[in-house]
Simulated assay, not measured.
Amino acid sequence: MRAASARVLVVSATHAEAAHVPPGTDLLVTGIGKVRAAVAVTRRLAGGEYRRVINIGTAGALHDGHAGLYTPSRVVEHDISAAELTAMGYPISDEWEIPDGDGSVLATGDTFVSDGRRRARLAERADLVDMEGAAIAQVCEAFGLPLRLVKVVSDNADDGAFDWPSAVDAAARDLGDWLDRTRFGER
């Protein structure tokens, strides 16, 4: 039988964000964006027995002063017209509750957010923004698996977002430390 931590799948969009994940971790690097994340996580979950998924990565802050590590309680898909599709008779969900989070809300979309107006609109609905969380939440719901989102703020979802490469290693250290400290979210 595999060790308990081996039955936890840790998912990251990039190798850079996962650079400090503890050795021996069952790690899946999906690539950037919702489709890549959904395809990769679905393939892995279909081929193995897991008891939970942890999605680690960076996120842009949608409110000034947000910094550090967050474990969101809800994730919303911000770039789909769920209300409009539902009104046309095609009900679709665009948000997922994540148990045991810290109360923050993560907005996910394939659009890289660096525009002030877009940031302000998203800030009405969320605290952070990323490009994979909602897709992974939808896949985990389909497989009946619990999900933990762990995001470190790397930028303010503004022009500074283009400096992501210079901030990612520090964020990756925080993510690796969280995995070590919490024994993969078990504490």
Results as ranks from 00 to 15, higher is better:
80 I>F: 08
26 D>Y: 00
96 W>K: 06
27 L>V: 06
52 R>C: 01
97 E>V: 10
100 D>Q: 14
62 L>Q: 11
102 D>N: 12
14 T>Y: 08
22 P>D: 00
22 P>F: 03
83 A>F: 11
87 A>Y: 09
72 P>L: 07
97 E>G: 05
32 I>Q: 13
20 H>Y: 11
52 R>W: 07
36 R>F: 01
41 V>F: 13
21 V>G: 12
82 A>E: 09
88 M>W: 12
67 A>Q: 14
17 E>R: 07
87 A>V: 00
99 P>Q: 09
64 D>F: 14
42 T>N: 06
41 V>H: 12
17 E>C: 10
52 R>K: 15
107 A>H: 04
31 G>Y: 09
12 S>W: 00
50 Y>A: 07
90 Y>W: 05
48 G>F: 00
45 L>C: 08
40 A>W: 04
90 Y>F: 11
29 V>C: 11
13 A>V: 04
112 F>I: 06
110 D>N: 13
78 H>L: 00
42 T>W: 03
110 D>T: 04
29 V>R: 15
59 A>F: 04
87 A>Q: 10
72 P>R: 10
25 T>K: 03
85 L>A: 09
96 W>A: 13
106 L>T: 02
114 S>R: 05
89 G>Q: 02
67 A>T: 14
41 V>G: 09
34 K>W: 00
42 T>Y: 03
18 A>H: 03
107 A>S: 14
51 R>V: 01
38 A>R: 00
77 E>V: 07
22 P>T: 03
82 A>V: 07
47 G>D: 08
113 V>T: 13
90 Y>V: 11
49 E>S: 13
59 A>V: 03
77 E>Q: 13
39 V>D: 13
18 A>P: 01
8 V>C: 15
31 G>I: 02
71 T>C: 15
20 H>M: 05
105 V>Q: 12
84 E>M: 15
36 R>E: 02
112 F>L: 07
93 S>T: 05
56 I>F: 05
66 H>W: 06
8 V>R: 13
105 V>N: 09
26 D>R: 15
89 G>K: 02
62 L>H: 09
107 A>D: 07
70 Y>H: 15
110 D>P: 04
104 S>P: 03
94 D>L: 04
78 H>C: 06
93 S>A: 14
17 E>Y: 01
32 I>C: 14
102 D>K: 14
117 R>T: 12
96 W>D: 08
89 G>S: 02
74 R>L: 10
52 R>F: 04
49 E>G: 12
47 G>R: 04
63 H>A: 15
80 I>S: 05
13 A>I: 05
118 R>P: 01
72 P>E: 05
79 D>W: 00
54 I>P: 15
85 L>K: 05
88 M>T: 08
105 V>S: 12
72 P>W: 00
60 G>H: 03
81 S>W: 10
23 P>S: 09
61 A>I: 00
41 V>I: 11
92 I>Q: 14
46 A>E: 02
84 E>T: 14
58 T>D: 07
68 G>R: 10
85 L>M: 15
9 L>Q: 03
93 S>W: 04
66 H>I: 08
56 I>T: 07
56 I>S: 12
23 P>A: 13
98 I>F: 03
51 R>M: 01
26 D>N: 15
90 Y>H: 15
79 D>A: 09
